[in-house]
Design a protein around this nucleic acid. Structure first.
Lengths: 138, 138
DNA sequence: CTACAACAAATGTATATACAACAGTATTAA
DNA sequence: TTAATACTGTTGTATATACATTTGTTGTAG
């Protein structure tokens, strides 16, 4: 049976979509999408350091094209700030605001619980296996 | 480390997206999307038997809403036919056409090769593991 | 110093998707 | 038979995404 490859491809798409749909449903309460949340989470991970759009994009799930507009939306909500980089005015530096940090803080525990729920089909060992496998993809 | 759950969720989204993007790039040559291809593949799997939109949707990655419109597009291309079910006129029966079958036949081998390429990071045993794990999700 | 290439981000446009509301048909119960 | 309900599919609308093009900036070769 060499549809092992084929099944893996479709199973990954189905699994990824299952998570994306549920996560979007979760974030809807906070008027965020998964992508928007990811940006905020990445910014928080910078510990106050700036990040530019180009770097930001590398950490994201989807393509560059949208990053500008996603960031715009988060700025409108006051969750982040944009600033033209002094040394290289092509670059836009982005920081999370206190409001953004506050929103994330309010989400954290609920998200942990929700992610547990979404992955409840797996034992701890299976989760380790799954992560090891998924992180091989490139 | 209990971000095992969290990592699994994001890894699944990233992995699923990686496959979806690449598959869409592949199908672009044939002027199809992954979703459109999936519909045709499901129809071929029916071996001439009809399937209605409701049943079709169950086998798909995304939500019902689009199935009507996806099917419309495939009909315009002449790849499938729609027919109102005689016994229950709420139902729409869908069949793949010879043109649709021909298109799939022309794709088959290239797709097998491409799917192998997309999953080249995995050994056979890992693929079996991965499929087993992914098919647990619900 | 100027022209040209490379870089970083923004914008235009077409398509895809989610979600909600709607329409037509069938079933059931009063 | 009629009214209420469920079933199946369609449509409208807002948002999301991909892809290509454009703008503004920097670096570099001549």
């Amino acid at each position: 049976m060499n549809d092992l490859n084929s099944r893996a491809v479709i199973n990954l798409m189905i699994g990824g979509n299952f998570m994306a749909e549920n996560m979007n449903a979760f974030f809807k309460i906070y008027d965020l999408t998964v992508q928007q949340y990811n940006i905020l989470r990445i910014l928080r991970g910078q510990d106050g350091l700036a990040i530019n759009l180009f770097e930001l994009q590398k950490h994201m799930i989807h393509k560059m094209s949208n990053t500008t507009r996603l960031v715009d939306k988060l700025k409108i909500k006051g969750l982040l700030e944009r600033k033209v980089c002094e040394e290289n005015r092509r670059k836009i530096e982005i920081f999370i605001t206190d409001k953004g940090l506050g929103l994330l803080a309010g989400i954290d525990q609920y998200l942990i619980d929700y992610e547990k729920k979404l992955t409840k089909s797996f034992t701890k060992e299976e989760l380790i296996q799954l992560n090891t496998l998924l992180e091989k993809i490139k």
